[in-house]
């Protein structure tokens, strides 16, 4: 039997009621961006992408070197959105139960009590996911996909919203279990953070780390508001027929491309649609433009398709961009 975590509001409540205003939501997102911008110097773009990923109910894979602010980003997001935050530091001896939690015998009550693991949070940072064993990775990925956890015969829903930010270190390959491409598909986006630009980094050097202060940031949005936004993006953002047709053309182009051995899966296509919707929303529109699709394709496609070996070392975004340049936009 399934059970809703207590701190999760009902997401199926109709959106757009009197107490909910689209413009206000967009304003508060703007505000959240501004607040976070104070702590995350020069990371506006990854922050934006993370928000898009979050609002389109996907999960985010950040592939970058350590120390570039992945954790800060995750904590900041959780705080500013008024959500709970959990962190899993992956190691090769991490067990699935370390993630999901386990039942422990309570002497006083004489019962096994379930102690939820760190996955029972709204925003989870899974650090260095490629260091966990495949078994643990699978458990995590299953939880991400199904948004529920099965432990000791009990299936439990995870809190809503549920957002995983996984990080992967591309440089260190020794003793790791890199995520296979088929698993990558479960992440809605794969992004890089990159080094902050000079001014931003200088600012960081001047001011020092503000991680401590980040914990005391006042939330701009509530859990309920976040859920409503997610709901609105799914149902309220218009992706018109020409746009769907345009997407189909892009998807077919990936399947036909000479650079790729396998094109975009249907899950990938859905991811492209959802992220495009979120991108449109973030840009203050309630309809999707080809520009949204194109912007999101660069982040939603490269990690899901299989490149021919000879193109393995080419910048994959560039290949996708060249694919996009073969598809005329609809009008």
């Amino acid at each position: 039997m399934s059970q809703r975590p207590l701190n999760t509001p009902d997401p199926s409540k109709p959106f757009g009621g009197k107490d909910w205003d689209l413009e206000q939501a967009q304003r508060s997102i703007q505000e959240a961006m501004e607040v976070l911008g104070r702590y995350l110097h020069g990371k506006e773009k990854p922050l934006r992408l993370a928000l898009i990923c979050f609002f389109s109910r996907g999960h985010l894979l950040i592939e970058d070197l350590p120390g570039l602010g992945k954790t800060t980003l995750a904590i900041g997001l959780a705080k500013v959105l008024g959500l709970t935050f959990g962190r899993i530091q992956c190691t090769s001896d991490l067990l699935p139960t370390d993630i999901t939690g386990l039942s422990i015998y309570n002497k006083t009550s004489g019962l096994f009590e379930f102690h939820p693991g760190p996955i029972f949070h709204n925003i989870i940072l899974v650090d260095e996911i490629n260091r966990a064993t495949p078994k643990t990775q699978s458990a995590l990925l299953e939880a991400m996909g199904e948004k529920q956890v099965t432990a000791e015969g009990r299936t439990m829903d995870l809190p809503q919203p549920f957002f995983v930010i996984a990080t992967q270190n591309p440089a260190e390959q020794f003793g790791t279990f890199p995520l296979p491409e088929s698993q990558m598909d479960r992440f809605m986006m794969k992004i890089r953070i990159g080094y902050p630009h000079r001014e931003a980094e200088l600012e960081i050097l001047r001011g020092g780390s503000k991680r401590k202060e980040l914990y005391s940031v006042e939330p701009v949005l509530s859990q309920e508001g976040v859920l409503r936004i997610q709901h609105f993006i799914r149902d309220g953002i218009i992706a018109s027929e020409p746009i769907l047709d345009y997407m189909m053309q892009i998807i077919e182009a990936t399947r036909r491309s000479e650079f790729l051995t396998a094109g975009l899966s249907t899950r990938g296509a859905l991811a492209l649609l959802h992220t495009s919707r979120a991108h449109a929303f973030m840009n203050g529109r309630d309809y999707v433009l080809p520009e949204d699709v194109k912007a999101m394709a660069l982040h939603a496609i490269p990690h899901r398709v299989f490149f021919r070996e000879e193109y393995d070392h080419v910048d994959k975004k560039e290949i996708v961009r060249s694919l996009l340049e073969k598809v005329p936009v609809p009008a």
């Binding site: 018109s240 309630d286 433009l289 080809p290």
Partner: peptide, 9 residues
């Protein structure tokens, strides 16, 4: 233009 083409269809 965008609104007419992509929103209203």
């Amino acid at each position: 233009f965008n609104e007419a083409v992509y929103r209203k269809g």
